[in-house]
Simulated scan of single mutants.
Amino acid sequence: MKGAQTSRLTSLHDVELAALSAAGDRAAFGELVRRHGSSVRGLLRRMGAPASEADDVAQDAFLAAFERIGEFRGQGTFVGWVRKIAARQYLRRLQRDKRIASLAAEAQDLVEEPRAADGAGRIDLDEALRALAPAERICVSMCYGAGLSHAEAADALNLPLGTVKSHVKRGLDRLRARLAPPSGQSEGRRENG
């Protein structure tokens, strides 16, 4: 019987699972966690959380999402909604631990010279994000990984909107420079694209 229920749940859309979860179906919510847990943890890692902390914050975010599942109306994706919850919880944790100031001081130690992609031409986004200054990494991750607007990120970080926009712009510029193909390798593609 349990296998049939699991099979039924895996075929449902996230919005349907959220509705079942809001009605008290814990197995439906478990399916949402199974589907999206690694994505949420990945976002937190990109924001700078060590693996164990990313696991803890992701678990807390899913618990908060379960408690507030009735607020999810399907106007966006479930994974986007829970990522926003996780990003905000991680930022509150950073603020509570007063690490934002110490992260900014470490920025000079973390910035490395750009390295070329490996022989297969793959680009390691996580490595490129780690090379950003912590404030830039957090702002870029929140706006592009969690899907927050600049205003939402500014509110979550308790920073002025212009500061968040500056961090995002500098972070994106550094990522473009770091992830750009070596000069002369794909000139034709850039001119045509």
Results as ranks from 00 to 15, higher is better:
56 D>M: 12
59 Q>K: 15
59 Q>L: 14
62 F>N: 05
63 L>A: 12
63 L>G: 03
63 L>I: 12
65 A>F: 02
66 F>D: 09
67 E>F: 12
67 E>N: 11
68 R>S: 09
68 R>N: 10
70 G>T: 08
70 G>F: 02
70 G>I: 09
73 R>L: 11
76 G>V: 07
76 G>K: 08
77 T>W: 01
80 G>V: 02
81 W>R: 01
81 W>Y: 04
81 W>T: 03
82 V>C: 00
84 K>W: 03
84 K>Y: 01
84 K>D: 06
85 I>Q: 07
86 A>V: 01
86 A>H: 06
86 A>R: 03
87 A>K: 07
88 R>P: 03
88 R>C: 08
88 R>K: 12
89 Q>C: 00
89 Q>W: 00
89 Q>Y: 02
89 Q>V: 00
90 Y>H: 11
91 L>V: 15
92 R>A: 09
92 R>E: 08
95 Q>Y: 04
95 Q>H: 11
96 R>S: 14
97 D>W: 01
97 D>I: 03
100 I>G: 03
101 A>F: 01
101 A>Q: 05
102 S>V: 15
102 S>G: 13
102 S>I: 13
103 L>F: 13
103 L>M: 15
109 D>V: 06
110 L>Y: 04
110 L>V: 09
112 E>D: 10
112 E>G: 01
114 P>H: 06
114 P>S: 04
115 R>E: 07
116 A>G: 11
116 A>L: 09
116 A>F: 02
120 A>D: 15
120 A>F: 11
123 I>Y: 08
124 D>L: 00
126 D>C: 04
128 A>N: 02
129 L>S: 08
130 R>G: 08
130 R>Q: 14
131 A>V: 09
131 A>C: 14
133 A>W: 03
133 A>M: 07
134 P>A: 09
136 E>K: 04
136 E>S: 10
140 V>W: 03
142 M>H: 07
142 M>D: 05
143 C>V: 05
145 G>T: 04
145 G>I: 05
148 L>A: 10
150 H>C: 06
150 H>W: 06
151 A>R: 13
152 E>Q: 15
152 E>P: 07
152 E>A: 14
154 A>E: 05
157 L>Y: 02
159 L>P: 01
160 P>W: 03
160 P>D: 11
161 L>K: 12
161 L>T: 10
162 G>P: 08
162 G>V: 09
163 T>Q: 14
163 T>I: 13
164 V>A: 01
166 S>F: 11
167 H>L: 10
169 K>A: 15
173 D>N: 15
174 R>S: 13
174 R>E: 08
176 R>A: 15
177 A>L: 15
178 R>N: 04
178 R>C: 00
